[in-house]
Simulated scan of single mutants.
Amino acid sequence: MYRLVATYNHPENPAKFLDHYENVHAKLALNQKGIRNFEWGMCSTADGAAPPHFLVAVCDWDSKEAMLADMSSPEGQEGAADLENFAGAGVSFDFYEINKGI
């Protein structure tokens, strides 16, 4: 399995960000044909302090090649283009092959 983790910075308007993310961007992510898992959540901390990020999303594919194919597809390009509609505060991406623990 191959994973993409997107970490979103705190937006100026959290309610507007969440509305767009849940009702537009998340649906675009799910339109990708090779995606095997998609989950997201708002960040928090154990002590109630402000977390370093606002939201984290995780997407899984069978392989790096499957992820690259999805990202270059029309559906993947539509999702990438949508970032400018809501992620103005910034987003970081990490990619990795999933390795099982003990």
Rank of each mutant, 00 (worst) to 15 (best):
L28A: 05
E65P: 04
N37D: 13
A89T: 06
F93N: 08
N37C: 05
E22A: 11
D47S: 08
Y21I: 09
M71G: 11
A29S: 09
K16N: 10
A80C: 03
G76I: 07
N31T: 14
F38V: 09
V56A: 11
G34C: 02
V24A: 03
E75P: 07
I35S: 06
K27R: 13
N37S: 10
D19M: 05
D70M: 03
V56I: 14
N37T: 12
G48M: 06
F86L: 01
K100E: 15
N99G: 09
G41L: 07
S63A: 02
A69Q: 10
A49I: 03
A50L: 12
M71W: 11
H53G: 10
A26V: 04
K16M: 09
G88L: 09
D19R: 10
A46R: 11
S92D: 14
E75F: 01
T45V: 04
E39Y: 07
A69W: 00
G88H: 08
D82Y: 02
F93I: 15
V24C: 06
L18I: 14
A89P: 09
G101M: 13
E75D: 14
F93D: 10
E78I: 00
L83W: 00
P74F: 02
G88S: 09
W40H: 14
M71A: 15
A49S: 15
D82I: 05
D47Q: 06
Q32W: 03
L68P: 01
H53F: 15
L55I: 06
G101D: 12
N37K: 14
F38R: 04
D47H: 00
A80L: 14
H25M: 07
D19Y: 03
F17L: 07
N85K: 11
G79N: 13
A49N: 08
A81P: 12
E65W: 01
P74M: 03
G48F: 05
T45K: 07
K64L: 15
A49L: 04
H20A: 00
A26M: 05
E22N: 13
E39N: 11
C43P: 05
G88C: 01
A89K: 08
C59E: 13
E22F: 06
G48R: 06
N85E: 09
G76Q: 06
N85D: 10
A29I: 14
P51C: 04
D82W: 00
E39L: 10
C59A: 13
E78K: 13
